[in-house]
Structures are given as C-alpha cells and as structure tokens.
C-alpha cells in the first residue's frame, strides 16, 4: 500500500512566527517533539489568562496528544480576533472563563488551568456543555482544527487529488491486508 508520512509539516506561517531555527528542526522532526510556546502574540481582546484557559479547554475538547498546542491556540486566536469588535462575544468568552474558573475553585483548585487531571476538567466541561459559550468554542474548534490543512497529514488524509490526477494510479485499490 502507498502509505502517508503522517508527520505534520511546518508552514511558512509558522516559520514567521517561530523563527527559522525551530522551524528547521520541525521540518525534519514530528511536530509534537519540538517544544514551542503556544502563544505567538498578545491576545487582542481577551486577557492573557483567559486566552490560555481557552487553549486548555480547546485541547480538552479534542485531545490529540500528537498535535502541538499552537494549532489549538491558532483557533482561539481567531475567536480572540473576532471578539475585538464584538463586545457581546467578548463578554460571553470572559464570562465563560469565569464560570470555568469558578467551578475549578469549587473543586479547591484556583483556576481551570490548575485542575491537574483531564478527567476532572472534562467533568467541569460536561456541566456547561449546553451553554452558548461551550457551543461557540466547540463549534469553532470542529472547523478550526479539522479543517486546518496543515493537520491533515496527522490524520492520514491527503486532501485535494484532482490536481494530482486523482488516485487512479496512486493507490485507490492498493489495500493488501484483507
């Protein structure tokens, strides 16, 4: 079978963000091995703490251990940008974070981000999963994460094929383990 290199390749956008040295390492190593800060720039609408909490929440929603934080942060960045000119959205996000932190405090942790186990954080999220705040983050993550072309190799998905002549000569029927 024609197999796929499932390592996520670094993009030009990442090069600009992270500098060439890290990117050069990333280009030859699986992304998750390369340690990088999640946040490239200051948030434009949310507080730094709120932003970090939402990144944590995003990973708890769709926990792919081999996908680096910056991909989760990239989606939250898009929500942060949208909140810059949308006061109602900004309020919803900040209130949502306050609610998460409140529930964490109730469990004797200071903040959502300080809750040590995924299991306990998921239990907190379960309690708020019908709220518009939760649905906003969840819905945005579904497209933001899984429609990110850079991540498609991780899932073993090759994306467009017409420009490569389809799969007629590229393994459409090459299964060999049945």
């Amino acid at each position: 079978m024609r197999l796929i290199d499932k390592r996520v390749k670094v993009s030009r956008r990442d090069m600009l963000r992270t500098g060439g040295a890290v990117a050069a390492a990333a280009s030859v190593m699986p992304m998750a091995i390369v340690h990088r800060g999640a946040l490239a720039a200051e948030p434009v609408a949310l507080s730094k703490d709120s932003f970090a909490t939402l990144v944590k929440m995003a990973r708890d929603l769709y926990p792919h251990d081999k996908i680096a934080d910056n991909y989760y942060a990239g989606v939250i960045e898009s929500i942060d940008k949208a909140a810059k000119d949308d006061a109602a959205l900004k309020t919803m996000l900040e209130d949502g974070v306050t609610q998460l932190n409140g529930k964490a405090t109730g469990l004797k942790y200071g903040a959502y981000g300080s809750v040590p186990s995924e299991e306990e954080r998921v239990a907190i999220l379960k309690e708020i999963e019908t709220t518009p705040f939760f649905q906003k983050i969840r819905g945005t993550m579904i497209t933001g994460l899984y429609n990110n072309k850079e991540l498609w190799p991780h899932f073993g998905y090759e994306g467009p094929s017409a420009d490569k002549g389809g799969y007629i000569n590229r393994g459409f029927s090459d299964i060999n383990w049945l």
Partner: peptide
C-alpha cells in the same frame, strides 16, 4: 467523508477523548 466533514458528521456534538481517538483512526 474527508477529515473536515468526518469531524462535523461522525457524531455531531460529540467531544472528548473517545471522539479524538476515532478521528486519529481516520486513515484506518
């Protein structure tokens, strides 16, 4: 379905580790 639509339609509204694990198995 491709990865983008699989995420949207596999079990709409679902989230968490079991969903992520199913998505990780997309090519299988």
């Amino acid at each position: 379905l491709g990865v983008p639509f699989m995420a949207a339609f596999l079990n709409p509204g679902e989230w968490g580790r079991s969903f992520a694990e199913a998505m990780d198995a997309y090519d299988r």
